[in-house]
Design a protein around this nucleic acid. Structure first.
Lengths: 332, 332
DNA sequence: CTGAAAGCGCTTACAG
DNA sequence: CTGAAAGCGCTTACAG
């Protein structure tokens, strides 16, 4: 797999490498004669020349590579984000490196190092618990970086997110209006700020109402089992109950429990889920859910990163998108 | 974002860049004194040195990058494959570039060019219809390349796949034994060989049996609509019918139709689907499906590619894995 | 045990 | 309008 270089073109066309470089890059400044241009282009075509971006990157000190670190690529939410980001990145001339850290801070750190060695021009990350050290290191190096979906409690970084707190308030208000006897909040036992926001928005409204609320908080692994076990304990069908699943994984786990136990929605229990996933559509009842504007978020994240790459600014702004409540038939 | 280089280390440590390079790479051959080694490592640590892989790639003429082109990253099947491939690649010291071509041959070609310019050492691809030109170009350049999931009719390339023909025979036999009056095959109107294999395996058995079979073949876009429309026309609930959905997308579209129309499985109709997806588990009936051994396929594909990278061999072998029929409750 | 030097494939300021 | 040369950050054969 010996590949043709600019040098080969120069030799065959009988010109210098400088000239070849100029015409291949169509620089306006220095005019090359039509004839030479044509010749060079022909030769390049003939010998099947492919530019070596690595050499270019080295010379230019920028790789036009950006790294994306998601918490879990097998999660619909992140794979859809990744896809949109790839599209946007390509539009701006970047190639995307994708890494999934599976909620593991070691792997997160490893990926940042890998990307850094690979000379990515910047990174879009969904930070996980205990990833502050890795992030701080990047910041010390003034590495352009923006967060997506999640944000950090102690570090102010440009990024995109949704109005987690407010949307949970909204859902809570919506459920309160329906006069349920009992509400169940299903979330994670976690320190991730965006997930706590979801919880606190809900809590804040509940408290004001004085209604009973039960909480089901699971670890980030074994979601299915934990949700099933706790629903079994806490779901009391004798009361008029509504459940709020605060993520797609939790939603799927919960719906599966209801299916397995032949619990009817919304007759026996009402529910609202988070994020959109194909799975919701196979549930017998149309599921009401909170939808995030993924494509817009992806676009904005790439835009922010591109800005950071061009003009590094350590206290970049956070952009908050409005999630949308898609009202279907799962609440009575 | 000025980054420290080997030269900085050399200057500070008072040695040559060659020496720095040797100790950083822990080369056995040329012994460097303990003292110098320690000094260099210390300096590297202090100034926060990160190796520049791009410079290394250029010098070594290999990037330790591999490219993955999937047909559609938002498909569970491919995002799971991608994740496994990423893990395997990392184990062998490769970083993964992922591109999704969305079944579009232009985009496929663009991605191969992009990856080629980025100097990936090889590519793992799921070729789409009309991607032969792009592939042939890579082959002419002796680019290491292996296929995954799909294969090409006219080009012999190393790759991994499943026994599509045989597994469809098996499913057909299984259904025939149950004495259905009517079988419906749901597939794609496509030239993709692996999908035709699924169809032909089914056809072959059907023909021998003399039973009536209906075919629903959809384009690769608008799957949901087309499946719904055709099921509406062709599904005759007065007959004892079984449906075979030959992909996860088709399965999801079909299940959604059944849910929407309140058709009970397996009471009103029986079915078998393809591939595993979380969505199947939210369907009221446990869905029987054909499961591909994704992790093994991913591992093998990376292994094959690594072999190709180390010893290029144009007629590499194709590795076929056995798909597994997961029998649940959707067939009566 | 250590260093000077060449070279990977590019780009670009400078000179002609 | 075109070319010689330096340099991006590395590795490594060779010399000492």
């Amino acid at each position: 797999m010996k590949r043709a270089s600019i040098k080969d073109i120069a030799r065959i066309a009988g010109v210098s490498v400088a000239t070849v470089s100029y015409v291949l890059n169509r620089k306006e400044g220095s005019r090359i004669s039509e004839a030479t241009q044509k010749k060079i282009l022909e030769v390049a075509e003939n010998i099947n020349y492919t530019p070596n971006k690595i050499a270019k990157s080295l010379k230019m000190s920028k790789s036009k590579l950006i790294g994306l670190i998601v918490a879990d690529i097998s999660n619909d939410f992140y794979s859809n984000i990744a896809r949109s980001i790839e599209d946007e990145a390509m539009k701006l001339g970047y190639t995307l490196l994708i890494g999934s850290c599976d909620e593991n801070p070691e792997k997160f750190k490893k990926l940042t190092e890998l990307f850094s060695e690979q000379q990515v021009d910047g990174m879009i990350v969904a930070p996980v618990v205990d990833s502050d050290d890795a992030i701080n290191k990047l910041i010390r190096e003034e590495y352009p970086i923006v967060t997506i979906d999640r944000y950090l409690k102690n570090i102010n970084l440009p990024g995109v997110m949704i109005n987690n707190f407010e949307v949970s308030q909204y859902i809570c208000d919506y459920l309160l209006k329906k006069n349920f006897n009992e509400l169940i909040y299903v979330g994670y036992d976690t320190e991730l700020p965006h997930l706590l926001d979801r919880q606190h928005g809900f809590d804040e409204r509940i408290e004001k109402s004085g209604i009973a609320v039960k909480r089901i908080l699971t670890g980030i692994h074994n979601i299915t089992e934990e949700v099933h076990k706790q629903l079994k304990n806490k779901l009391d069908l004798s009361k008029k109950t509504a459940i709020y699943f605060s993520s797609n994984k939790l939603g799927i786990a919960g719906l599966r429990y209801l299916i397995d136990n032949d619990i009817k929605v919304p007759e026996d229990v009402s529910l609202v889920a988070f994020d959109e996933t194909e799975a919701y559509y196979l549930f017998p009842t149309e599921v009401s859910f909170v939808q995030q504007p993924l494509a817009e978020m992806a676009r904005e994240s790439v835009k922010l990163l591109d800005q950071q790459i061009n003009h590094y600014n350590p206290d970049g702004k956070r952009v908050t998108f409005q999630a949308k409540f898609m009202q279907r038939n799962s609440v009575e």
